[in-house]
């Protein structure tokens, strides 16, 4: 295993130089034990091609910077071991996001825009009293919120989503999951109608066509199908005029 020679076919394009058409560049590398795409790409940059653009930050599947299409699947490059792949490894940048160059895409801008659209902050009329004890919360509720908040904004779900590929304004699984996170949070005082305003359209809950590439490719293994369906049902119920007894804070 350790003696394999790997062939990397890497997408190259610099949007600042559009006169040079996109092309695939080939690099060869000897595999070493425990090699991940993170190690491989850095070696290629240091030893063969210092102009190659790609993004890594934490290299531990926490920050979500390094998502790319690896042999046809959106994945985190840091978490992808080369020994799980064939000799030939094809790397493409994520679609949907603005291309910065080669494998580097601008996920940050997309996600900030999504956060603004979904108003991803706790809407509360309370002001913080530094002297008061914290408000109590059920630990189970805290865990549920955390479950939805585990999203690392890597963009795998968006890149794999056919709807997101053709509809610029679609929130995608990450966006709808984000709304679910706040719907579950008792501190958020938004009314059902306000939530309907945020996701009650084809840009939100009703835009999903159920292809589930998000669910299949989430590196954090978030239960995206269930989160999407949860929001769809709740929002549909709100739209049809059901008045939930205790707000919509019930999972």
């Amino acid at each position: 295993m350790a003696d394999r020679e790997l062939t990397f076919e890497v997408f190259r394009f610099n949007p600042q130089k559009p006169e040079i058409q996109p092309y695939l560049q080939t690099y060869k590398l000897n595999e070493t034990t425990g090699m991940t795409i993170f190690i491989a790409l850095n070696r290629i940059r240091e030893e063969q091609d210092p102009s190659l653009m790609f993004d890594f930050v934490c290299r531990a599947a926490i920050c979500g910077s390094c998502a790319m299409i690896i042999n046809g699947r959106p994945r985190l490059a840091c978490k992808t071991l080369t020994n799980t792949l064939p000799n030939k490894i094809k790397l493409f940048p994520l679609p949907v996001f603005k291309l910065i160059g080669d494998l580097s895409v601008d996920t940050g801008t997309w996600f900030r825009h999504m956060s603004l659209k979904t108003e991803s902050w706790v809407h509360t009329s309370k002001t913080f009293d530094p002297k008061a004890q914290e408000e109590r919360m059920d630990n189970e509720t805290a865990n549920k919120i955390y479950e939805a908040e585990r999203c690392i904004e890597c963009g795998c779900c968006i890149a794999g989503c056919a709807t997101a590929n053709i509809r610029d304004e679609f929130l995608g699984a990450a966006g709808i999951n984000r709304v679910a996170r706040f719907m579950l949070d008792p501190r958020d005082e938004r009314t059902p109608a306000e939530y309907f305003e945020v996701v009650g359209s084809e840009e939100g809950a009703f835009g999903c066509m159920g292809l589930m590439a998000c669910d299949d490719n989430c590196p954090m293994e978030l239960p995206l199908q269930m989160q999407l369906a949860f929001v769809r049902r709740k929002i549909a119920a709100i739209g049809l005029g059901y008045k939930p007894k205790k707000g919509i804070k019930l999972a």
Partner: peptide
């Protein structure tokens, strides 16, 4: 302690006492 509680108001789902 103040900083922790402030983050709780802002939205951090701190693990709670059971």
């Amino acid at each position: 302690p103040v900083a922790v509680r402030e983050m709780a108001v802002w939205g951090v789902p701190w693990s709670r006492v059971v």
